[in-house]
Amino acid sequence: MSSPGPLLQATAPDARKLSFRGEHLRRLSVLARYALEIRRLALVGIYHAGSGHPGGSLSCADILAALYGAELAIVPGEESDPHRDRFVLSKGHAAPALYAAWAACGYIEKEAVRSLRKLASPYQGHPHVKDTPLAETSTGSLGQGFSVAIGMALGLRHLKSPARVYTLLGDGELQEGQVWEGAMFAAHRGLGNLLAIIDYNKMQSDDLNANILGLEPLAEKWRAFGWNVQEIDGHDLSAILEAFQRASQATGQPSVIIAHTRKGRGVAFMEGKPAWHGSVKLKDAEIQTALAGLGLGESEIGSYLNGSIG
């Protein structure tokens, strides 16, 4: 990656890649299917692993579907293109959803999610860039992915690359002081090629954010730090795409999208319950119920859990 050689050449945006971005502007129904598939595959991974964080994986599934399904200029098979967009999952514990998004959007085989957290698998409990280069960096210690993304945005601007950098943070993550160091820096440097998205599901490991260490007034905080702020429903795919579009126009300052979401979204018995934040073991009955609720019939559930996934 950083072997000696000429610097990244300052080139005009690659026309083919931009057309790829256009081709990928899929209809919302396609993105909705991706989001549904992300939820199923994330839970399949957690079930097979016997541990993993379902609540915060389900809350960001729509955001990830919109990113990988429509927004990010990353061509499958050309993931090492220096001018590709970067996405960093700063809330690394949502790794099951990240791998599921790669699977749903064609970057990896769907069956691969079943090796989540297994010894010989590249799909660790939290993303590791040396195992999965598409992770762009290693995360799992909150706050750091955000700063790494800031470094990437600064570096890409330094190299005059047209690529943009996206990063997804959890709400509990915002309690890390490092996040606010980074927020101050990105605004001071006017990093218009940076977009942060906050998966604001209002809950963290032990309880509601509001009971642990309150974040409000959150939008005012980001505005005060000099960011271009939008607040949306993080499960409304149309709203997510429109927010991406508006953020791309704020060239002189970094953008943040505060995406209001629901923890455990899509699985009735998990929704809104902090107990499903943490690393949990999904029982047979629970995964059956969850996948049925996500639109799978009995034979399909069997395929998702142990067979070939279409």
């Binding site: 950083s2 610097l7 790494v148 800031i150 470094g151 990437m152 570096g155 820096f185």
Partner: peptide
């Protein structure tokens, strides 16, 4: 951490 990001882009 940002140094890690700068290194990541070469």
């Amino acid at each position: 951490s940002a140094a890690g990001g700068l290194a990541a882009v070469g």
